[in-house]
Amino acid sequence: MTAQTAGSTATPDGGPVKKGKKHLPVWQETILLLGIALVLAVVIKALFVQAFYIPSESMEPGLVENDRILVEKPSYWFDGPERGDIVVFKDPGGWLDGEEAAGPRGPVAKVLSKVGLYPTGGHLVKRVIGVEGDVIKCCDDQGRLTVNGRPLDEKDYAQLSGATCYGPMVTDCGGDWEIGPIPKGEIFVMGDNRRHSADSSEHMCKPTDKDCTANPYVDVDDVVGKVFVLLWPSDRFKFLHRPDTFADVPDAD
């Protein structure tokens, strides 16, 4: 048996000594972890969950201006929005004013918004009242909207702000209106604050309009996802659910 010489890399039985795995410096590990976190944030934003904020008073009383909300996207991977869902969608064109459409300001906020870590601007938040094929009327003798002939009980979440019906933006409750059947791939949306919401009812043709070409619908492809959490302020944190009244609406003929 031969003795090992100084500085030898062999084990006592003559085999090579295994070297330990070299660790990255702390600063390099930090950069790597930040990069992985950013990639995951981008993937999560693109496919699963995204943060937004409420840009106006149109969804009061449930959602207040500047509330932070979370939107989930998997629900609409295979099926479109359902009646009663609160959805976030891209501005169909001219629904938002300049300030509401601006989104986050400042370089840090803008970067964070790109990866889903800061609420994004240029979007609206409304409740789905009707989907493809539905006929919506205003109003019955109690001032309620009807969808496919079934009245909606909206007193638990909608705010009238002095109006006498749940569809005041078209005629200010001074007359009845009807819209539908809703075209394929479109939805009809309204804010819960019925007298202060630039929604589908604000952008539809009024009964007295002649040669009107307004389009009050939102393309399903422009819907980002369904609001499922009121995230901030923390004292009002809650999960959001579809009101029971929409379960009674029959399918369109």
Rank of each mutant, 00 (worst) to 15 (best):
C205P: 00
E72M: 06
W177G: 05
W77T: 10
V64D: 01
F237I: 13
L117W: 06
T208Q: 12
F48W: 15
K22P: 05
S75P: 10
R83T: 02
A198M: 10
G106V: 05
A37E: 07
L47S: 14
P250E: 03
K238G: 13
Y166A: 12
T30M: 14
V17R: 08
T2R: 09
D97E: 06
P181N: 04
H203P: 03
V128E: 00
P207Q: 03
D221L: 10
D219E: 14
T5A: 14
V218L: 02
Y157G: 10
H123R: 12
P183W: 04
T9A: 12
T164S: 15
E178M: 10
V218S: 00
M190Q: 13
W27Y: 13
C205Q: 00
D97Q: 01
L32K: 15
G62C: 04
S234G: 10
D85L: 04
S201Y: 08
P233W: 10
G149Y: 01
L231Q: 11
M59Y: 08
E57R: 08
V26Y: 14
Y217Q: 01
T164P: 06
G20R: 14
G62E: 11
K238I: 08
P61E: 13
I44C: 14
L63P: 03
P168C: 09
T245K: 01
A163W: 01
V88L: 07
V111A: 15
K238W: 09
L231Y: 11
V39A: 15
P104M: 06
I44E: 09
K238R: 15
E65P: 06
P25K: 15
I54A: 02
C139V: 04
I129S: 04
D85A: 00
I129T: 02
G62P: 04
S113P: 01
R105L: 07
A252K: 01
V218E: 01
L231A: 15
L124M: 14
H196G: 06
